[in-house]
Amino acid sequence: MSGIEIRGHAQESDLERLKAGFNKKIDEVLSPLMKRHLQSLLNLEKTLAQSQKLEDALLIREERTRLSSVKGTEVLVGLPDSPTQLNALSSRFKRESLAVIRNWEAKYEKALTSLVTRLTKSSKLDQALLAKNELKSFRERIALRDGNEGSDTKSDKAGKVDYALASEGATAKAFQSAESLIDGDLRHSGSEGFAWGSYPSEFIVTFPKNHKIGEINFLLYDKDRSRKYAYQLFVSRREGGDWEMISDHSKKPSSGWQKHNFAPASIRKIKVLGLFNTANKNFQIVEIEAR
């Protein structure tokens, strides 16, 4: 395929044919780079395993599995930032991939623009609108990707990223109202704005990929300042990995903001195990932060 063509096809399928042609070309040009990258990851995984760095080796394996299940430019989304060796290989793969696909992305954008113009002139307005929306979406995806090179998320006012946000791709689990843990909203009342469950109760935040984190904070329900809580804080370094306790407040009455700092580590999940509340049999958390 020497270019992205849209002529010679029925107009009602032009957009679908154009998208299919573009995706096929991207898969084609990325294939040799992907093959080499996967082999490099496999070699790194074996080296780490032989060095008894099993957690890092499993992270490499997870990345190989992820890449094997996605196609096209999706392989360039969500590249891991740790461990260091994986980040180096992923950064090289992204640089090389962008170098070969930018030309085809430019051709695709030009073809979409031409298609919108042609369909509009032919009074096929519904089809023209679909093509226009695809052009807008495509440009937004490129801008987001290119704007994030060297940084996988936006920073907060302090210059640090709070990875425990739904807007950053995090997900949450709790007995009730888990979404409150990661919505970035600290407003709460006596009946809403917090996640809760009868203790002992687990509150889990999962990141879409590993992040290097050295600070975990969370806000306990504080409308009744007399109540005290007991809890334990855990992290997991990989999907399906063991939980490691990093703070034990099971015998330390706590209230309000709980702040925990530690040596930065590659983390996939956070778990707060709520153990006790002096006011009732429930445990409530307003928000969890991870930086």
Rank of each mutant, 00 (worst) to 15 (best):
L119N: 08
L119E: 04
A128H: 12
A131N: 07
K132L: 13
E134C: 11
L135M: 09
K136W: 13
S137I: 06
R145C: 07
D146C: 06
G147Y: 00
N148K: 04
N148I: 00
N148V: 00
D152W: 07
T153S: 14
G159P: 08
K160I: 05
Y163R: 07
Y163F: 13
A166K: 09
E168Q: 15
A170E: 02
K173I: 09
Q176R: 11
S180V: 12
S180C: 14
S180P: 15
L181H: 06
R187K: 12
H188G: 06
G190M: 14
S191R: 14
G193V: 03
G193L: 05
F194D: 03
W196Q: 12
G197I: 01
S201A: 10
S201K: 04
S201L: 04
V205W: 01
T206P: 08
F207E: 01
P208A: 04
K209R: 08
G214I: 00
E215Y: 10
E215H: 10
I216Y: 04
I216N: 02
L219P: 03
D222W: 02
K228V: 03
A230F: 05
Q232K: 09
L233K: 00
R238A: 02
R238L: 06
E239K: 06
D242K: 07
W243P: 09
D248T: 08
S250W: 03
K252S: 13
P253W: 01
P253L: 04
S254I: 02
S254F: 08
S255Y: 11
G256M: 10
